[in-house]
Simulated scan of single mutants.
Amino acid sequence: MPSVYDFSATSLAGEEIPLKRYEGQVLLIVNTASACGFTPQYKGLQELHQALAPRGFSVLGFPCNQFGHQEPGDARQIEQFCTSNYAVTFPMFAKIDVNGGSAHPLYQYLKHEQSGLLGSSIKWNFTKFLVDRAGQAVARHAPTAKPEGLTKEIEALL
């Protein structure tokens, strides 16, 4: 059975990272943007990551510029924004597409496993996919779902 561990993604530093590196962890995979009304969710994502990482949890951030061009920066600018404004320490990856023909294979998989309100398409920035320790997408949350509101659901998988 396929899992998120079958994919890899490029880090903001340009390194190809096999997601197998996160095998056995509970993951929250989020498409992010620096100039969005939901951008303050970085704070909640960082707090979740910090609080639950010792128990085997990680947030994985995937910047995307497909929604209102709200992630215009390059990798260096994205990293600088995230660290200086939200002290982000969770893994951030290079900017990707989440919809359309050039959607990253990981997002093609996630959307297939957990379709949303608009079918398989991602509606907006900060859509969240919860992945269990076996690498299976078990839930999808809309951009309006606050990270702190997911704590109990995440803890149930830890």
Rank of each mutant, 00 (worst) to 15 (best):
K123F: 06
Q46Y: 08
H141N: 12
T32D: 03
M1D: 15
Y42E: 05
P18S: 13
Y86V: 09
L118G: 12
D74Q: 14
L158W: 07
T151H: 15
L12Q: 05
I78Y: 05
C36R: 04
Y22S: 05
F62L: 04
P72N: 13
N65F: 10
F81W: 13
P18I: 11
T83C: 14
E153A: 10
A51M: 08
K123N: 13
H49S: 12
H141E: 11
P2E: 12
G100E: 13
L157W: 08
I29Y: 00
N85Y: 15
A87P: 10
G68K: 10
V131Y: 01
L28A: 03
F7K: 03
G61K: 04
N99H: 13
P54S: 11
N125V: 05
L28H: 00
G135I: 02
I78N: 01
G149D: 12
R55T: 14
V59F: 00
S34L: 08
R140I: 02
P105S: 08
A33K: 05
P147L: 11
R21F: 15
H141L: 12
V59Y: 03
K128S: 00
L52F: 10
H104L: 10
P147M: 09
F62K: 02
F90A: 07
S34A: 12
K111Y: 03
E16W: 08
R133Y: 07
P143L: 07
S120H: 13
K43G: 06
E23W: 06
R55W: 12
V138N: 03
L48H: 02
G14V: 04
R133P: 07
I29V: 06
K43M: 09
L27D: 01
L150H: 04
V30R: 01
S84K: 13
V88M: 08
F38R: 04
G14M: 04
G24A: 14
E15R: 09
K20L: 13
A33C: 11
L130S: 02
E79N: 14
L130Q: 00
G61Y: 02
G100R: 13
G44Q: 06
L117A: 12
K152E: 15
F90I: 09
G116Q: 00
R140D: 01
P91C: 14
F90K: 04
F81R: 07
K20V: 12
T151Y: 11
I122S: 01
V26A: 13
I122T: 00
L118N: 14
E15A: 11
A103W: 02
P18L: 11
N99V: 08
A134F: 07
D6C: 08
N125T: 08
N99C: 11
P63T: 05
Q114R: 12
P63V: 03
A139N: 04
T32V: 06
A103H: 02
E153N: 08
L12T: 01
A13N: 10
L118K: 14
V98Y: 03
V88P: 01
D6K: 05
E47K: 14
P91T: 14
K95V: 04
V59S: 01
A53C: 13
P63G: 06
A75Q: 07
T32I: 03
T32W: 02
P2C: 07
